[in-house]
């Protein structure tokens, strides 16, 4: 057969594409369950990092998660538990933050640590180059931060990317997100020498100004809808 003819070329490319397509879909189907498991384990690792539980060598993340995370549910902006079909673990926070506050599904993870019951809240926002996200753990007074974990997709190494280091996230421990008279203030991320009055603050990453501002607005925007929920915790703790 003439290898240069149009018919040959078309048949050749059709067969090639079909063969490649079949091979790729078989590979995809075969590996999919493992990939989903990996992604879930990675999320579980991040949630546990907010309460400073890090799997040691040989420990499985999902076992630790099942051991420490004693409950998870979804609340609305009035602090009431709602009963949607979805599991709190599967709520896509990146999509929820785009909705108006009263339509958002707000996931809460309860974690029984050695230091008492903690509430872990996912946060999501924008850095300089791409999304940033994290998990913030609160004491059962719904006010004091117990621990925080931040991650990013592509912030500048050595500058904005420092938000994922404990040197930055450990600063949040013990900060209150409500002012003494009960107004939601979140936590400011401020430059040295420009610390705000009347609210909790941490120091920004030097050289990572935009990313640090991103963390500040991420915390404010993601935590504010939980205000009612936090206040209900505070009420029950008293």
């Amino acid at each position: 057969m003439n290898r240069q003819s149009n018919t040959y070329t078309i048949i050749y490319s059709t067969v090639l594409v079909i063969v490649v397509g079949v091979v790729l879909s078989v590979v995809y189907q075969a590996l999919r369950p493992r990939q989903i498991e990996n992604i879930q384990n990675d999320t579980k690792r991040q949630i546990l990092a907010a309460v400073r539980i890090v799997p040691q060598k040989g420990e499985s993340v999902s076992q630790l998660f099942d051991k420490y995370i004693t409950g998870s549910y979804i609340v609305n902006d009035k602090g009431q538990k709602i009963d949607p079909k979805e599991d709190a673990f599967n709520v896509k926070v990146s999509l929820e933050v785009k909705k108006p506050a009263d339509e958002r599904l707000l996931p809460v993870f309860e974690c029984q640590t050695d230091n008492g019951l903690k509430y872990i809240i996912p946060v999501y926002g924008a850095g300089l180059w791409g999304p940033i996200w994290g998990y913030v753990a609160f004491d059962n007074n719904g006010d004091t931060i117990y621990g925080a974990y931040f991650a990013h997709q592509g912030e500048t190494p050595g500058l904005g990317a420092e938000i994922e280091k404990p040197a930055f996230s450990d600063q949040f421990e013990g900060k209150n997100i409500f002012s003494p008279d009960g107004v939601f203030t979140s936590v400011a991320v401020s430059k040295v020498g420009k610390e705000p009055q009347g609210q909790a603050w941490v120091h920004a990453v030097s050289g990572g100004t935009i990313t640090s501002q991103g963390v500040q607005s991420m915390l404010f925007d993601s935590l504010e809808p939980y205000s009612a929920f936090f206040k209900s915790l505070k009420g029950s703790a008293l």
Binding site: Q4, S13, L24, V27, Y28, L31
Partner: peptide, 30 residues
């Protein structure tokens, strides 16, 4: 391989192999 589309054929083969490698890495070394 028909000479007129040989670069495309090469690309398809390479792209398919790379996607497989990527999927395998995602599954085994996340």
């Amino acid at each position: 391989i028909p000479t007129s589309i040989r670069i495309i054929v090469q690309l398809v083969v390479v792209a398919a192999l790379v996607v497989i490698v990527d999927q395998v890495l995602k599954a085994y070394t996340y």
